[in-house]
Design a protein around this nucleic acid. Sequence first.
DNA 1: GCTGATTGATACTGGATGAGCATCGATGCT
DNA 2: AGCATCGATGCTCATCCAGTATCAATCAGC
Lengths: 292, 292
Amino acid sequence: MLETRQLHYFVALADTLHFGRAAEQLHITQPPLSRQIAALEQQLGVTLLARNSRSVTLTAAGRRLHAEARQILAALAQAERVTRSTAQGELGEVRLSFTMAAAWNVLPALLKTWQHGAPGITVTLREVTPDVLADALARGETDLAITFPWKQPSLLHYQPLFAEPLCAVLPAAHRLAQHTTLDVALLAQEPFITFPRDVAPALHDAVFGCCMEHGFAPAIQLETRLQQTIVNLVAEGLGVALVPASMRKMQLAGAVFIDLARSPQVEQGLSWSAHNDNPCLPLLLALTPAPS
Amino acid sequence: MLETRQLHYFVALADTLHFGRAAEQLHITQPPLSRQIAALEQQLGVTLLARNSRSVTLTAAGRRLHAEARQILAALAQAERVTRSTAQGELGEVRLSFTMAAAWNVLPALLKTWQHGAPGITVTLREVTPDVLADALARGETDLAITFPWKQPSLLHYQPLFAEPLCAVLPAAHRLAQHTTLDVALLAQEPFITFPRDVAPALHDAVFGCCMEHGFAPAIQLETRLQQTIVNLVAEGLGVALVPASMRKMQLAGAVFIDLARSPQVEQGLSWSAHNDNPCLPLLLALTPAPS
DNA sequence: GCTGATTGATACTGGATGAGCATCGATGCT
DNA sequence: AGCATCGATGCTCATCCAGTATCAATCAGC
């Protein structure tokens, strides 16, 4: 098999067509160059250079090998660069999972920041339902996820991204739908639409904590996993809900979003597995701005 | 710079993910493989494999290098093949020069034969006037030319391709134009259109020899270099001419081609320079059929 | 819980490889 | 004829690489 050294030597010689100068350029003396070229020719069984004892010329085969060898040397240098870049996380792929709710909000800005700060990283997006995020991270099926903070310690790391208040969603025909600001206490008797706590404990606790602070425990009429579905059910008149403020962007006929007079902030952030060794993660996390 | 050996070893290891089996596959023992991989990692400053003391896994950088290395090894093997092929003439380029007259005749069949017998050779065609053929060959501006045989010995080699008789060209209005076969002697008093002898001595001698055998020396009215021009001038009524029979294919209104009762054969063939070291030449010449 | 097997890493040694030095042979120029 | 240039060759020495023997760590099974 052709050796890198042989290609180097041959390319230098083919470039200069002069054994002495090529050797000098390679920081070796002339005899080893002569010998390496001779060995290369013998190995290939091909005369690469016509030595006229006063001038050196490439044969047809020599010209062909010259072109091939230059490409291979360039590919070698590139392989080295690319491998180093990959190890440093500047080059690679990151799989980001998120629920559709997050797409309304911080995702576009986040992707722009990453694209600008780490152009070599390809981000693969995957929309999922919130219940599978933790498993996907733990099993290595995804590298990053946009989630609420984790309530119980685990092997999942978390870095805050942004925080937003809750807002109320009411059916358009609801008696409170005309308010511009709402006191949560007014919803004490309303049927609530929520979601199972294990889907997003932090958000669930924020919603219930908000109600408790206003002196009531919400009457849960329906439970579903997706915030979008909650809003849809509200629009159908099946109840009311407290959802993250960014859900406003849904613009759904039949549902009205109303600011709360006093609301807790609900935080979301990036989660990743402690076992994930994707070298792009530190770079992306460092690029990610802290919550405002 | 990355060494071929390192790439080989690394690819085998990345394929098997097992030092022992990879070493066996490489026909070496395990310790040198461990060392080479360690050296590669140190040289790159990158961890390519995660050794879990019970399993070996590629890191992100390792996967990247694996892909790059496989491509490079394939390119190395290809470079070797291609260089050998080029040296043996199976791969390469040949420049073929010819006068337009030859294109009427043997060129298509010749190119088909070559294409079939040596598909790796690219033939570059160049149409020229006959006077520059010898110089172009001698100066290495072209590799092959379709020419008449050379009258004087030179550094140009020659291999016959085909032979054909002469035929007469007369203006359509000429008194002899209705003949289907012509005795050259009948043209003794006609004004002849020919070409300078140095353009194609063999053809010139054939034309003049033909006349002399029939007892006359042609009266040269006009001289021009191209056979096509000769036929054009005949069509204009400026004289008569003897041209290679394949010129019939010109199909020019105003000119009539008539077989000769008794004609010499004029031969054409492939010429090339003795100094031309294009390794494709022997192959193409061997493929070229002898004249029928 | 201990023993044996497996797996990768390390110390050491011998053979191969490659670079430098000196020199030769051939060619071209003065 | 003499000198300079250029690539090839003989020789020596340092380096590199593969093989042998061995170790440390881990896992399986009794």
